[in-house]
Design a protein around this nucleic acid. Structure first.
Lengths: 196, 196
DNA sequence: TCGCAATGTCAACACTTGTACACTTATACT
DNA sequence: AGTATAAGTGTACAAGTGTTGACATTGCGA
């Protein structure tokens, strides 16, 4: 059932998608829909949950494989982006819902993203050269990293599915950008004058 | 006419929006729509054009006011974000269309964004400490800056319209993030081993 | 003041939409 | 083997959809 619904986010955004189209795609009569979900928005939330449950698990694995400094960025980016490619439809769905979905959807996705940011901030707090950075700035750095990766992910989703060259380019770009950010992080002091 | 259509992007994404809703909101009979646009997607493209024409002009002004290093970041961010607040509906529209719109819409928006990136890259090329950075990396840095600002803008649009505290927080965050990136930029050398 | 172009109105059409209700079929469990 | 539960079918309806063609009103330039 969900299978046919994944094929959904391929073209139109979820919001402009009728119950009947879904059931037609699933090869089933419209009224059969209600046997599974009371509502279209319920379907949406279920899809969202399904998307993030597996993503969270993957992120946990990435976080645990402790690698030395430089290798870490490259490795994380690589596993993340191949994961994206293997779950293309789910990411397409989430990407469109982030800004185009209902209020509850958007908030749910933002909550998940904030969670990733916090976890990254915690990981970064263990870096020895970041002891002089206060918690707020740590959060700000982590959100910068996450936002950039998200943006690049969305850009990659815009590419053709089998444009391997383009996707590889995105990966390299992501790695460079994150490394660049880390250069900046190493330089940062939380006590510079606010200059307001 | 366009006035009533701006009030449109306040709730639903443009794609899931009927011709009749628009005309009703405009206080006009459905068929009158065709006197102005042949099509809903034509309306969308017009709205898009309207949004970016003024934006481009503003960006040009920001680019010309040459300020010394530190002041520049703060100043640019300030004028940009107040511009966003003053054109809230337009940005809401564009933000939703970036990922939720039709293929032609998305491509049009991406083209505009790439244009901003290129212009920023050109400006950055004039910095004395960036002579050792090749063109490709310049592009990558500029896109990092633009992506971050875009992400923060979208986050700000999620806030309540008159949550001034929250919006100010976004502004400060944006300034910090861009400054952080510039720290990294100052450290960058294009000839580090690619480590592939 | 006339006339014409722009803008708006009305009625009607063929479709699609979400949902309710009453049945039928398949699956699983004692 | 028999039955309860889950899943699917068919019909129906009221409401909303885009688009048509023929007609009415406005406003501005000659």
């Amino acid at each position: 059932m969900d299978a046919a619904l994944d094929l959904v986010a391929k073209k139109a955004p979820f919001s402009s998608l009728s119950l009947r189209e879904v059931t037609k795609r699933a090869g089933v009569v419209p009224t059969a829909f209600y046997r599974h979900f009371p509502d279209m928005s319920a379907l949406g939330l279920t899809l969202l949950d399904e998307s993030f449950r597996t993503l969270r698990q993957m992120m946990r694995e990435v976080r645990q494989q402790e690698l030395p400094n430089e290798r870490m960025i490259r490795g994380s980016m690589e596993t993340f982006f191949t994961y994206v490619r293997n779950n293309r439809t789910h990411f397409l769905f989430v990407s469109k819902e982030l800004y185009g979905g209902s209020a509850t959807m958007r908030q749910a996705i933002r909550r998940e993203i904030r969670l990733f940011v916090s976890e990254l901030a915690m990981d970064m707090a263990r870096f020895p050269f970041l002891v002089r950075v206060n918690a707020e700035d740590l959060q700000m750095m982590a959100s910068l990293v996450v936002n950039s990766v998200v943006a690049l992910t969305q850009e990659m989703l815009e590419l053709d599915e089998d444009d391997e060259a383009g996707q590889h380019e995105m990966l390299i770009m992501a790695e460079k950008q994150v490394r660049l950010i880390y250069f900046g992080v190493a330089q940062w002091r939380s006590d510079v004058p606010p200059r307001t």
